[in-house]
Design a protein around this nucleic acid. Structure first.
Length: 637
RNA sequence: GCCGUUGUAGCUCAGCUGGUAGAGCAGCUGAUUCGUAAUCAGCAGGUCACCGGUUCGAAUCCGGUCAACGGCUCCA
C-alpha cells in the first residue's frame, strides 16, 4: 500500500505497516528517533498500524508533538516511580503543561522535598530498565473493575464520567499501568532528560471543597542539553525576580505590620512618580481631568454601587461614630459622585475623570505575591462618561493610547481578550448583550485578534484585557477597558441630550498600566533592574578617583543636579574600581569619573552602565546627551 | 482560605544527633590617595520571627500565632 509523507511524496510500505515501519523505510536515523507518529493529523504510538493512503508524519523528540509526548510519558514514569516507592498512593491525572508536566496523587502522607530526589532516582532506574510501553484497549466497565480492585477511587471516578460505550486505553509499562489516551514513547529508555521541580497541594478537580491532592511538578526535554538550558532559564528568571531586585536595589520594602502592602522606598518612589508623570502627559494631551478623592466612603455608597453585595469579601471596613465606612477597592463609585454633582449636558461629554488614588482590596492570605498581587495599590485609573454614540470612538482612542504607551517600554507583543458576563453580576441581560457587542465591535473594527474568556468579566460589565510579553517571554495582564451600563443606572446618572430630555450615560472604566505596583514589578523584571535613563532612580554617579578630587566631584554633582538629573557622588574612601563596581551593581546608567585630568580641564570621563569608558567630555555635553535620552524616553543608553 | 516549605546580625548564609551563636558583605574607626567591576587592619553588631510547652539545659524537640516562599482555589 501507499502512504503519503509530509513533503507530499508517497511511499510504498507493506500492508500491515506501523508508524515505526514507515520511519524505518525512510531512514535508520529516523527509525531511531521516532517516538510517536501522526496519522492523518492524529497523534498515535509508533507501533500503531497505518491505513492505506494515510498522511503519515514521524514525530521526533525535538518537535512540539514530540516534546509533549516525552513530557506525558515522563509524567507516567513519575507516577510509576511514586507508586513503587510509596505503595498505596493513588493516581489521578498527569497532564503536560508548558515546559513540563505534573501529576496529582492521592496520599495520606505529603511528599517532602527529599522525596523528590528519591523519586527522581527511581525514575532513572526505570529508564534503565527500558520497559516497553504498550497500549491496551478496555471496555469502560472492565476498566472500572480493574481500577476499583486496586482501590484507585479517583481513576474510577474519572472513568465513570466517560460515556459508557467508549473504548478506553490503558498504557502498560512493566507491572505498572495507567488509564491514558496516549500516545506514549515506545519504551521508558527513551526518557531521561527530566527534573522534578516542586511539590504542591492541589484540589481534586480544582475545586476547593474537594480533597487536597499532592502535585509534583517536573520538567522534561528531548535531551540533557535542552534540560540544562531550561534550568538555566529558570535561574535567570529567578535572578530577575522583582522581589529580589526590589530589595537589592532598595526600591520596595514590606513590613510585617502591613502584609502585602508594598512600601516604596525613595528609589522606588522615583519610578512610581516618573510613571505617573508619564501617564499625566498623555492625560493633558488627550483631555482627561485628574481628581483627588477620599480613600474611605460611607458604606451606603458601596451598597448603591453593588460592591457591598458583590465585592464585600474583598473590602476593608472601618467603624466610627456609629457609621460604617468602606475603604474603596475601586474608584468608580466615587467618580459617579463627581459626575452627579451637577446637571450635565451632552455637550460636556465625554467626561474623562482620572485618579491615581490608592485602592485597598483584601486578598486572602496565600494569594499575594510581591508587587504583582497586593492589598494596597494605585492604578492609572480613569472613568469615561460617554453617550452611547461615543463608545466606539472612545474605545478606539484607548486602543491607540495603549499601543503608544506600551511601545515606550518595548512591550510590542500585545494580546487581547474579551471577558464576558460572570455569574455574580448586576444589570439586565439586555445591558450585557449591548455592552459585550460594543466591545466586540471595537475589536473587530480595529482588526484586532482576540480570545474570549467566558464569565471572566467584572460584576458591572464586560472587560477587554490586554496582555503583554516581557523581555523573557512571560505574559502579564496589564490594561483593562470595561464597559459599564450598570453603575450609571444604579446611581441614576443622567445628562440632558440635544432633545432636551434626560439620558443615561455609559461609563468606561479603563487603566492602561493597570496597577502601578504590578506594572513596576513587571518592568523591574523586564529590564532586569537596569532601567532606561528616564526611569532610573539614580541617573548619574560621580566617581572621584581619590579624596583629592572630592571637591571637584561635588561640583560636578551640583551641576548635574542643577540640570535636573538625579545624581549621587561617591564620597567613599575606595579605589575607582570599587566605586565602579558599586555603581554597576546599583545599575546606575551614567558614571562620571573625575580625577586629575578632569579637574584641570573641567571635564568628566563618562562610563556607561552598558558599555565601558566613553572618554572625556564636558559637563555640558553629558547633560545634553542625558537630556536627549530622557526626553525621548530612550530604551538604550 | 487550603497543602507543603522556610524564618539565625542591615543583606546573603553556616550552626552535625539539645550543652546559652559564627562567616562574608554592608556599617563604624584608622591607615592608604589610588584611573574603569572588590586596598588593608581593627571595632561594633543577634530577646536565634513571636507566644507557650518538654527538658537540669532549647536556635536546635513539640504545639500555637504571625510573616514570607512554591503551588491550589480565588482574583485587578
Amino acid at each position: 500500500m501507499h502512504v503519503q509523507l509530509p513533503d507530499g511524496s508517497s511511499k510504498e510500505v507493506p500492508d500491515n505497516a506501523t508508524v515505526a515501519d514507515v520511519a524505518a523505510s525512510i531512514g535508520k536515523r529516523l527509525a531511531k528517533d521516532a517516538i510517536a507518529g501522526k496519522v492523518n493529523g492524529k497523534i498515535v504510538d509508533v507501533y500503531a498500524p497505518v491505513p492505506a493512503g494515510a498522511r503519515i508524519e514521524i514525530v521526533t523528540p525535538k518537535s512540539a508533538d514530540g516534546l509533549d509526548t516525552i513530557r506525558h510519558s515522563t509524567a507516567h514514569l513519575m507516577a510509576m516511580a511514586v507508586q513503587e516507592l510509596f505503595p498505596g498512593t493513588q493516581v489521578t491525572i498527569g497532564p503536560v503543561i508548558e515546559n513540563g508536566f505534573f501529576y496529582d496523587f492521592g496520599t495520606e502522607r505529603p511528599f517532602a522535598d527529599e522525596d523528590l530526589r528519591r523519586i527522581e532516582e527511581k525514575m532513572q532506574e526505570i529508564v534503565k530498565r527500558d520497559l516497553p510501553i504498550r497500549r491496551e484497549e478496555w471496555s469502560r466497565d472492565e476498566a472500572v473493575d480493574l481500577f476499583d480492585k486496586l482501590g484507585e477511587k479517583f481513576k474510577v471516578e474519572i472513568i465513570r464520567d466517560i460515556p459508557g460505550d467508549q473504548v478506553l486505553s490503558i498504557y502498560r509499562q512493566g507491572e505498572w499501568f495507567d488509564l491514558c489516551r496516549g500516545p506514549h514513547v515506545p519504551s521508558t529508555g527513551r526518557l531521561g532528560a527530566f527534573k522534578l521541580l516542586s511539590v504542591a497541594g492541589a484540589y481534586w478537580r480544582g475545586d476547593e471543597r474537594n480533597a487536597m491532592l499532592q502535585r509534583i511538578y517536573g520538567t522534561a526535554w528531548a535531551d540533557q542539553k535542552e534540560l540544562d538550558e531550561h534550568l538555566k532559564r529558570i535561574e535567570e528568571a529567578r535572578a530577575r525576580d522583582h522581589r529580589k531586585l526590589g530589595k537589592e536595589l532598595e526600591l520596595i520594602y514590606f513590613s510585617h505590620f502591613a502584609p502585602a502592602m508594598p512600601i516604596f522606598l525613595p528609589k522606588g518612589t522615583v519610578i512610581y512618580n516618573e510613571l505617573i508623570d508619564f501617564v499625566r502627559a498623555f492625560y493633558r494631551r488627550d483631555g482627561y481631568s485628574e481628581v483627588v478623592t477620599p480613600l474611605i466612603w460611607d458604606t451606603e455608597l458601596f451598597k448603591i454601587s453593588g460592591h457591598y453585595d458583590n465585592y464585600r469579601d474583598n473590602m476593608f471596613f472601618s467603624h466610627i461614630d456609629e457609621r460604617e465606612y468602606g475603604v474603596k477597592p475601586m474608584n468608580c463609585p466615587g467618580h459617579t459622585q463627581i459626575f452627579a454633582m451637577e446637571r450635565r449636558s451632552y455637550r460636556d461629554l465625554p467626561i474623562r475623570i482620572a485618579d491615581f488614588a490608592r485602592l485597598h482590596r483584601y486578598e486572602r492570605s496565600g494569594v499575594t505575591h510581591g508587587l504583582a498581587r497586593v492589598r494596597s495599590f494605585a492604578q492609572d485609573d480613569a472613568h469615561l462618561f460617554v453617550t452611547p454614540e461615543q463608545i466606539g470612538p472612545e474605545i478606539d482612542r484607548e486602543l491607540r493610547l495603549i499601543k503608544e504607551m506600551y511601545d515606550v517600554f518595548g512591550f510590542t507583543d500585545v494580546r487581547f481578550a474579551l471577558s464576558t458576563r460572570p455569574e455574580k453580576r448586576v444589570g439586565t441581560d439586555a445591558m450585557w448583550d449591548e455592552a459585550e457587542a460594543a466591545l466586540e465591535k471595537a475589536l473587530k473594527k480595529n482588526g484586532i485578534d482576540y480570545t474570549i474568556n467566558p464569565g471572566e468579566g467584572a460584576f458591572y460589565g464586560p472587560k477587554l484585557e490586554f496582555q503583554v510579553t516581557d523581555a523573557i517571554g512571560r505574559p502579564w495582564q496589564l490594561a483593562t477597558v470595561q464597559l459599564d451600563y450598570a453603575l450609571p443606572e444604579r446611581f441614576q446618572l443622567s445628562y440632558v441630550g440635544a432633545d432636551n430630555s434626560e439620558h443615561r450615560p455609559v461609563m468606561i472604566h479603563r487603566a492602561i498600566l493597570g496597577s502601578l505596583e504590578r506594572f513596576i514589578g513587571i518592568i523591574i523584571e523586564h529590564f532586569a533592574g537596569a532601567f532606561p535613563l528616564w526611569l532610573a532612580p539614580v541617573q548619574v554617579a560621580v566617581l572621584p578617583v581619590s579624596e583629592k578630587f572630592l571637591d571637584y566631584g561635588d561640583e560636578v554633582g551640583r551641576e548635574m543636579q542643577r540640570a535636573g538629573l538625579r545624581v549621587q557622588v561617591d564620597r567613599s574612601n575606595e579605589k575607582l574600581g570599587a566605586k565602579i563596581r558599586t555603581a554597576q551593581l546599583e545599575k546606575i546608567p551614567f558614571m562620571l569619573v573625575v580625577g586629575e585630568k578632569e579637574a584641570q580641564n573641567r571635564t568628566v570621563a563618562l562610563r556607561k552602565r552598558s558599555g565601558g569608558d566613553q572618554g572625556s567630555m564636558t559637563i555640558e555635553e553629558v547633560v545634553v546627551e542625558a537630556r536627549r535620552l530622557i526626553d525621548s524616553r530612550s530604551l538604550t543608553l
